[in-house]
Design a protein around this nucleic acid. Sequence first.
DNA 1: GTTGGTGCAAAATGTTTGCACGGGG
DNA 2: CCCCGTGCAAACATTTTGCACCAAC
Lengths: 145, 145
Amino acid sequence: VSTGDASPAPSDWQATLRSRGHRLTAQRQLVLQAVTELGHATPEDVCSKVRETAQGVNITTVYRNLELLEELGVVRHVHFGHGPSVYGLIGDGEREYLVCESCGKVRAIRPEQLDAAREAIRDAFGYEARFTHFPIHGLCADCAE
Amino acid sequence: VSTGDASPAPSDWQATLRSRGHRLTAQRQLVLQAVTELGHATPEDVCSKVRETAQGVNITTVYRNLELLEELGVVRHVHFGHGPSVYGLIGDGEREYLVCESCGKVRAIRPEQLDAAREAIRDAFGYEARFTHFPIHGLCADCAE
DNA sequence: GTTGGTGCAAAATGTTTGCACGGGG
DNA sequence: CCCCGTGCAAACATTTTGCACCAAC
């Protein structure tokens, strides 16, 4: 392979799809394209984006395709607060998140930046912490003053 | 005062309630009693428990009283996963939580047990992390093997 | 031509709101 | 006797499910 990437290559997901007996549909491609272009998006956001290209697409289809793409390891969802899930590309690696409880600002970081914290948690509790699905909540530097 | 407690004393919330123009009702007391007895409970759980004593109580009333008791600093809610919020007493101090993504087990810990992790996060990002509202997710020792 | 995918409607789930009545202070 | 709290119904927001039809392969 030319890329040293651990996650599926940009079009490899289509092969995985097929090997599992799934089909390649326009909606499926549009949902992935929407997530790619939007960066972080709710199912509602994705649906709106998809409809710019294909009018009749139903939100149900968006939910079903986001779920499938997540199973394939192409996208993942995060819970930033009380609202809807937010989907994003995995692409060149996972991200973990810091969310400020006061100003709501979200900061995406690379997992290795949290290794010290993860180690402290592992040492104390034997837990291997992951902040990809539920982010770290707290007060950011600006709000903590 | 006889207790050195930072949070309101066991019956002090009633005074705070009154000072804010609220009233002491049977439902209000029963909701708090239910949370106390259940330890960790969803609004649905609390409602069922309350109905063991007073049949006609509506879940709306439970939601409204949980919200009020939270404003008063008597209870708080946590999000353990995709389901409903879970309420608990604050009583003798806050708790923070570790939730295993694999087996679903929840471990409650005292905030100071996470001080090393909190310090690592503060050093790296200037964030003051709180795991009271959204817990730490990951793999517990048993599931990480 | 199979059988998986889609659209639509409806249900399920968790929570909030509007409103008239009743009870706490 | 005022007005906060309650019960009830309905709305709301997010996600899931059932089913007939359509389209990918």
